[in-house]
C-alpha cells in the first residue's frame, strides 16, 4: 500500500488502493476482510453484529437481538 498510507484521508487511500486493486494479495486480503466483517461474530469479526445492523439483516434465532 506504500509509505504513509495511514496518514492519508479516506479518499486518498481509495486512490492509492485502486492502483493495486487487482493484485492477487490484495484481492485475497479484501475477501478475508469481508468474510470477517459480514460473517457471524463467532468467527471473531463483526463485533456486536455491526455489519448486520448496517445492512439490515435481522437474525431471528432464539436469543437474537
Amino acid at each position: 500500500m506504500g509509505p504513509g498510507f495511514l496518514a492519508l484521508s479516506p479518499a486518498e487511500r481509495t486512490v492509492r488502493l485502486a492502483g493495486i486493486a487487482t493484485a492477487p494479495w490484495f484481492t485475497t486480503l479484501a475477501e478475508l476482510a469481508a468474510e470477517g466483517y459480514y460473517a457471524d461474530p463467532g468467527n471473531g469479526g463483526n463485533r456486536d453484529e455491526r455489519s448486520w445492523v448496517m445492512l439490515g439483516y435481522e437474525p431471528r434465532l432464539p436469543g437474537s437481538r
Partner: peptide, 20 residues
C-alpha cells in the same frame, strides 16, 4: 440470504470487491 452469502454470490460482477 445471509450477509456473507450476499457478499459472495449476489454482488453485480462489475462491482469492486473492496473499498467504499
Amino acid at each position: 440470504m445471509l450477509p456473507i452469502i450476499f457478499w459472495k454470490q449476489a454482488l453485480p460482477p462489475d462491482l469492486p470487491r473492496w473499498g467504499q
